[in-house]
């Protein structure tokens, strides 16, 4: 188990796609910084009544959905990059206990996404604070003590999305298939759901992955309680990874 996990960790680090994905997250952090800076500059030029109507210049709004999707891509690639070329057969000859292999991938992807997702979340918050300086409430985000639960929830959501990506990858065995499914779930469903009659529009949106973190931390209220949001996150993991595990064990490689 430890050996297979160490091997998976080595595998993730020795392909370039991992580093490109992390680089893209850094790029989006830079973009978020720029947007935050421009918003703050605009705020400085505005009259007080306009200033009061500003949203927060917190880069997380831009950075987190992208970063979470990037971790979902990483999770999917950890599985599909081995199916596209047949590497999975070479891997399964070296590590034939399939559930052990899946658990090793879950550990590597999960720990990586949780740690890096939380780090990105904290970095985005810190950047927002540096850019907005000592300006007052609407433009500057929540104080650190109030923002803390949301920052950890962002990391948790990154973990869930990364593992759902991994589950889709094992299930579908195709990079394109896994990424399209993940994209639809994260970005298309919330947009289409708005067209549904109330209250189904909000109900559907509230259970899509990007809205679970803020509901879990209590930042977003009105639909799911934090406990319900956590339960939906766990349901995603059970369904995606459970289906993936079933296919991995049952189907010929």
């Amino acid at each position: 188990m430890i050996d297979v996990t160490a091997s998976e960790w080595l595998k993730v680090r020795t392909v370039r796609s991992t580093w490109y994905l992390l680089l893209s997250v850094v790029g989006v952090l830079a973009l978020g910084t720029l947007i935050s800076y421009l918003m703050t500059a605009e705020w400085d030029r505005s009259t007080p009544d306009v200033q009061a109507a500003f949203a927060s210049a917190d880069p997380s709004v831009v950075v987190m959905p992208f970063a979470q999707f990037a971790f979902g891509v990483l999770g999917a690639l950890v599985a599909t990059s081995e199916y596209g070329n047949g590497m999975i057969r070479t891997v399964l000859v070296a590590a034939p206990r399939r559930l052990v292999l899946l658990v090793a991938k879950v550990v590597v992807v999960g720990v990586g996404a949780l740690a890096l997702g939380t780090a990105v979340s904290f970095a985005a918050y810190a950047i927002g604070k540096v850019v907005t300086g000592d300006r007052p409430a609407p433009i500057s985000g929540d104080p650190f003590s109030e923002a803390l639960p949301a920052l950890f929830a962002n990391g948790l959501a990154a973990l869930v999305i990364a593992l759902v990506g991994l589950g889709f990858g094992v299930l579908l065995r195709s990079t394109a298939g896994a990424l399209v499914t993940l994209c639809v779930l994260m970005f298309v469903v919330p947009v289409v759901a708005v067209l549904l009659p109330a209250p189904w529009n909000n109900r559907v949106v509230s259970v899509t992955p990007l809205y679970l973190g803020p509901q879990f931390s209590g930042q977003l209220t009105g639909q799911l309680t934090p406990a319900q949001a956590l339960a939906v996150m766990i349901a995603y993991l059970v369904v995606a990874l459970g289906a993936g595990a079933l296919v991995l064990v049952r189907r010929d490689a």
Binding site: S7, L10, T14, E82, M87, T90, A94
Partner: peptide
């Protein structure tokens, strides 16, 4: 057991030594 099934069934992005390290590490 050592097996060579399909020499093309490898991830092309790793270096030869890293490919072997990944497999070796799992055992």
């Amino acid at each position: 057991v050592g097996a060579l099934l399909d020499a093309n069934a490898v991830h092309g992005g790793r270096s030869a030594v890293n490919h072997l390290r990944c497999l070796a590490r799992s055992n």
